[in-house]
């Protein structure tokens, strides 16, 4: 469970978030809003990559200020640009990198890596250099590297922005099948259709918070 209490975030001279309060318990939560409205900042708050200037964020009942490491272990984060989060030269190595602190025997690590790659259709690329993958495959690899750790919560910042229709459908399908809580920031409105809850962010505040149809309707009117 994620709880934000009157969160303000100041970056440089700008007050990027201005009093955000919300409790997120639903399994599928979407976040929409104009460019620069503060969505990515909101997402980064959830695993302690950004800390509130005032107010507080708790995840699993722990404060992100004091327990960032513990929280990051339970909150997987997927960035927009897969090139930034793939840190190892080859596909299998990048997934294995996630498991390095588990202290698993080598065969067990290899087995989990293989299973995860198989599930997302990357098994045949296991030993290929990451830069030989297409953009969509790179995003799937980034997702594999997050999911292999079986996080309790998954936060995604525009996971489908760089993907073509087929790959964004694939990611949407994966999203639907995941058992964990998922918070997705996106401009891809159809992706949110069957979500449980959608937040609309505008100028650092939550201006609508409802079911997808209502919230997206509000967002469309706001942008018109």
């Amino acid at each position: 469970m994620i709880r934000l209490t009157d969160v303000h975030v100041r970056l440089g001279q700008r007050e990027v978030l201005r009093g955000v309060t919300a409790t997120l318990t639903e399994r599928r939560v979407g976040v929409v809003g104009a460019n620069g409205s503060g969505k990515s900042t909101l997402a980064r708050l959830l695993n302690g990559l950004v800390l509130p200037s005032s107010g507080g964020v708790t995840v699993f009942g722990l404060d992100t200020r004091r327990h960032a490491a513990r929280i990051r272990r339970g909150v997987g984060f997927l960035f927009t640009d897969p090139d930034a989060q793939i840190v190892m030269p080859t596909v299998a190595e990048d997934v294995a990198f996630s498991l390095r602190r588990k202290g698993l025997p080598r065969e067990e690590t290899e087995r989990r890596v293989r299973e995860t790659l198989e599930r997302y259709g990357l098994a045949e690329h296991a030993d290929h250099p990451a830069h030989h993958l297409s953009g969509g495959q790179k995003q799937l690899l980034a997702l594999c590297s997050v999911l292999v750790l079986e996080p309790e919560i998954l936060v995604m910042d525009e996971p489908t922005t760089l993907l073509d229709l087929r790959h964004s459908r694939q990611v949407a399908g994966v999203l639907r099948s995941l058992p964990q809580q998922v918070v997705v920031v996106t401009h891809d409105l159809p992706l949110l259709e069957d979500f449980d809850r959608v937040l609309v962010v505008d100028q650092g505040r939550i201006v609508a918070d409802a079911d997808p149809a209502t919230a997206i309707g509000h967002y469309r009117k706001m942008m018109a």
Partner: peptide
């Protein structure tokens, strides 16, 4: 910018724990 993003990704993947 890439270096920045990489640092953030490493933090998100728990390098500093």
């Amino acid at each position: 910018r890439h270096a920045d993003a990489l640092g953030e990704a490493l933090a998100a993947r728990g390098l500093d724990d």
